[in-house]
Amino acid sequence: MLMTASLLCGLVFGAGLLISGMVQPTKVLAFLDIFGAWDPSLAIVMIAALTVSIPGFMLAKRRSRPLFAAKSLWPTKSKIDQPLILGATLFGIGWGLVGLCPGPALESLATLSPRLFVFVASMSGGMLLESIWRRSRPLPQRERDLANVADG
């Protein structure tokens, strides 16, 4: 049931990206281009998503456990640290260069576009490099365990 539920959630997420037009990098870049012909659609996508997810998460937090798993894995980190700031900056630059973030990039593999395959391969390479780099740093075990927990 965990797998079926997860597949269904992926389908709904994909439908959302598709309907909102956010799978199209040119539409994302039009939102980011505030000094050009600005298209505020992405802001509406965010507001609509939050309108559903804020009350939805409040409800989820009140439940003792999810339907098909033993417990809810809420992110535990709260400190705004250096990796967060540096990581978000690097991601923002990459996002601004092409207009693709991980969700639309993976979904767009369905178009079989060679450029998308190269982007996803590079993105995977970047993720692997980050995990190698993180493992190579001399950190106390406790901090290392904490560093492995993603926010999302």
Partner: peptide, 16 residues
């Protein structure tokens, strides 16, 4: 761009 998006999202703990 792909390398930056991959490295940055993992280092920063998340994406959009």
């Amino acid at each position: 761009a792909g390398l930056l998006v991959g490295f940055g999202t993992r280092l920063g703990g998340g994406c959009t």
